[in-house]
């Protein structure tokens, strides 16, 4: 079709700012998401942490807290997916389909606030684990921050991918909870990876949580080796790219979705 009316909005950054500003406001005013992502891992780490993690001795509680934080940081899958579905709940998708903003800017703006929230959760739990729960820090905090940022990036990209592939919010939410629990378990965020059955360890390599926990263990109980941490970074970056690229390939501003929230 010859359509001379189509032209992308100005810039990636401008689009990301405009979309991100609205998303941040919406997220801030819906306090339940903020409470949920902080309270749930805190409660579970406090009650179940050392008992189910298989750890004992100094730093065990700290590692358990970090593990639950890693697991629940994947709430970002739900929040990022909902951020995209929100346009269909409120009927604003037609306006975006008309404007056709930069896809990259739109995607970044959509996921940035929820990714920032999940990253903040990891940072706060990391500080608590190191300062109050005697988690050792063999490497630098930068190593932990990098792994956390990439883990959250992979989760946000997965939320985007789930949005692109699903038609309803309910389906996306179910998938998000499924990966939150199973990836968390397989990746060694709940029970230490070495204590998991061999078959599940093999599956664990295919989860972002495993690579995040591997980097975390190297930075805390290990030697802070950049080689080990760097391998984890590469794996996490790979997840970000694979999820993001497939999501972008499947994404369509005109896609019809179920508008029920």
């Amino acid at each position: 079709m010859n359509r001379t009316t189509r032209q992308p909005a100005d810039s990636v950054l401008g689009t990301a700012q405009a979309i991100g500003r609205s998303e941040a406001r919406i997220l801030w005013r819906d306090r339940t998401a903020i409470v949920f992502i902080f309270v749930l891992p805190a409660v579970l780490a406090g009650i179940l942490g050392p008992a189910v993690s298989g750890l004992a001795g100094d730093g065990a509680s700290g590692q358990a807290a970090l593990g639950f934080a890693v697991m629940f940081s994947f709430m970002v899958v739900t929040y990022a997916g909902h951020a995209f579905f929100r346009e269909h709940w409120y009927g604003t998708n037609a306006r975006l389909a008309l404007i056709r903003p930069s896809r990259l800017g739109y995607g970044l703006g959509k996921i940035a606030p929820s990714a920032a929230l999940a990253f903040l959760q990891l940072v706060i739990f990391g500080i608590i684990a190191v300062v109050f729960l005697d988690l050792p820090l063999a490497g630098g905090p930068v190593q932990l921050l990098g792994a956390g940022a990439l883990l959250v990036g992979a989760g946000a990209a997965l939320g985007f991918l789930f949005f692109a592939l699903t038609r309803s919010t309910a389906t996306l939410s179910n998938l998000a909870y499924l990966v939150l629990v199973t990836f968390g378990a397989l990746g060694g965020a709940i029970v230490v990876f070495d204590r998991l059955p061999r078959w599940s360890q093999w599956l664990g390599y295919f989860t972002p949580q495993f690579w995040a926990m591997r980097a975390a263990r190297e930075t805390t109980f290990g030697h802070g080796s950049w080689t080990v941490v760097g391998q984890s970074y590469l794996a996490l970056l790979g997840f970000c790219l694979v999820f993001g690229v497939i999501g972008a390939w499947r994404f369509d501003f005109n896609a019809e979705k179920d508008a029920t929230s």
Partner: peptide, 19 residues
């Protein structure tokens, strides 16, 4: 151009119009 489906034909806004 805000609906999913197959569209054939020509739509033009003004002279060299944009979104």
């Amino acid at each position: 151009g805000t609906v999913a489906g197959a569209t054939v034909g020509r739509v033009e806004v003004g002279i060299g119009g944009t979104t």
